[in-house]
Design a protein around this nucleic acid. Structure first.
Length: 493
RNA sequence: GGCGGCAUAGCCAAGUGGUAAGGCAAGGGUCUGCAAAACCCUCAUACCCCGGUUCGAAUCCGGGUGCUGCCUCCA
């Protein structure tokens, strides 16, 4: 497959360090608040990458960290009067729930900074020994000017930055560009022992330590949001290669685009945030995921809540299509028409090729939609055989799995919970159309009885009664569809 | 101030030299008791503006305009 590499600024063929095997490290979250849509996007993008690579036959090792100790966590924990690691543990728990709802597969390894201190100390030791760092009054700092390639990833030069007005001023540094590898603890702060005194890791060192620890020098893909390019990833390269003594740190760098809200980047510090949890109250996780996959992963995504309504309609179409094939597939039948088989296999070919092209999800989704239309068209022209339906279902599901949109039961579950929420409204409808509402123990029983009453009326030719019932139900968000094999319903909030 | 990115129909969005994918919405039709769903048809002489290169440009180059990212914590 081809991917866009941030370092070379080119879209290149992905050639792994070891044939058939991909090692990837994705910068995870600093868990001091609920995850927002931007975090969700990044997680979904790299989850898609992993799924696609596995689908393409690679053995993938995916590492993603939690930066569970940092200044913001410490401050937030102090405000709440709890231990920093308790605070981060709580938000890690939330994050896991949110990601599960989005059908993000758990990474293979999820190291935490607080559990990687020894690796971090060892790495700093190597950097110091190689002469790229120095000990100062409040910690250990990396000497940026000693690393000649500094600025290559983010495309800036040390001298340009020096003239910039916004570099941090700190008298403990030899140069304003230097950054902390180890911060000595102030009284009362959480700390770990180190050769340089009690303290905690600086912001960037943990990712170098954890990625090298679990994947080794020269691993394949390092990813994250594009806001991490500078300084985080720039610093990671500098310190890692300083420690590795000239060996390459990472083969390919990938960065996912930001989510914008109100014309600005969504971020916790700006406060223009929609959390994943808030969104999941309104839409099934699969709909949220589909929304996120509609835009190419590198482009900024303009968050717009009305887009979720569109995504909902589209996901509904997918879920109904799957149900349609599943029903047809029950009937056993003779073989496939060659033409039908070629529809299925060329769909998969087009789908794979789209994702192999730097994860072109828009095109991959277009091929899914076209496939649905083709199969439906065939079904409307002649009866689709059971084996054909099964084959179509097989390829359709494999595509949905790669996209992580295979949890159609999520949509169905959403449907039934919506229905349960309509208890009250349905009782009113029952009363209006003359159905006794008392002796039904569930909302769906009640709906069934109403639908039955309508069916009787229809069969008796009393269309005015039947239509009235249908209109009443539509009024409460339940749309009935009369098919040849019975009544189906769609339900909306 | 420095270094980037983006601008395609009402909305979302692909396409990066060969004559505008796909989805939503909208309009018409088939089917249906009527609907819905499904299917069929229609829906950008045109890709922010002005120049240039080319047989040919949404795609390349130059200049504008607008929006935006990073340079500070950030996914």
């Amino acid at each position: 497959m081809r991917i866009h590499d941030t370092l070379t600024r080119k879209t290149v063929e992905l050639v792994p360090r070891e044939p058939g095997r991909i090692t990837m490290y994705v910068c995870g979250v600093t868990p001091y608040a609920s995850a927002h849509v931007g975090h969700a996007r990044t997680a979904v993008v790299y989850d898609l990458l992993k799924r696609y690579l596995r689908h393409a036959g690679y053995v993938v090792t995916h590492v993603s960290n939690y930066t569970d100790i940092d200044d913001k966590i410490i401050r937030r924990a102090q405000e709440q009067g709890i231990a920093p690691l308790d605070l981060s543990a709580r938000y890690i728990g939330e994050y896991l729930e949110d990601m599960a709802a989005l059908n993000v597969l758990p990474p293979d390894i999820t190291p935490r900074v607080s559990e990687s201190i020894q690796d971090i100390i060892d790495l700093i030791g190597r950097i110091v020994a190689n002469g790229y760092a120095y000990v100062s009054s409040d910690g250990v700092y990396f000497s940026v000017r000693k690393f000649s390639c500094y600025g290559r990833l983010s495309g800036r030069s040390v001298d340009e930055m020096r003239s910039g007005a916004r570099v941090e001023v700190n008298e403990a540094k030899e140069d304003p560009l230097d950054f902390a590898l180890w911060k000595l603890a102030k009284p009362g702060e959480i700390s770990w022992d180190s050769p340089w005194g009690k303290g905690r890791p600086g912001w960037h060192i943990e990712c170098s330590a954890m990625s090298l620890r679990h994947l080794g020098a020269g691993f394949d893909i390092h990813g994250g949001g594009e806001d991490l390019i500078f300084p985080h990833h720039e610093n990671e390269i500098a310190q890692s290669e300083a420690a590795l003594g000239g060996q390459q740190f990472v083969r390919y760098w990938m960065h996912s685009g930001m989510v914008n809200m109100g014309g600005e980047k969504m971020s916790k510090s700006l406060g223009n945030v929609m959390t994943v949890r808030e969104l999941l109250e309104q839409y099934p996780g699969q709909v949220v995921r589909l929304y996120l996959l509609q835009t190419s992963y590198e482009k900024p995504l303009k968050f717009n809540i009305s887009g979720f309504g569109q995504a909902f309609t589209t996901y509904e179409r997918m879920a109904e299509f799957e149900a349609f094939l599943q029903e047809l597939g029950q009937v056993s039948h003779e073989g496939l028409e060659p033409e039908f088989e070629s529809t299925c296999s060329s769909f998969l070919g087009e789908f794979d090729a789209s994702l192999a092209d730097n994860l072109n999800t828009s095109r991959a989704l277009a091929s899914v939609y076209e496939f649905m239309t083709r199969v439906r068209r065939t079904a409307s022209e002649r009866l689709l055989g059971g084996s054909e339906a099964s084959r179509a279902l097989e390829v359709f599901r494999s595509a949905l799995w790669v996209l992580g949109l295979d949890q159609t039961n999520d949509y169905m579950g959403h449907k039934s919970s919506l229905l349960a929420g309509k208890q009250h409204a349905l009782m009113a409808v029952a009363a209006e159309v003359g159905v006794a509402a008392d002796d039904h123990n569930s909302t769906s029983d009640l709906l069934d009885t109403i639908v039955m009453k309508r069916r009787v009326a229809r069969e008796a030719g009393q269309y005015d009664v039947a239509d009235q019932i249908r209109e009443r139900l539509r009024g409460v968000g339940i749309a009935l569809e009369d098919g040849v094999d019975g009544v189906r319903y769609r339900i909306h909030g």
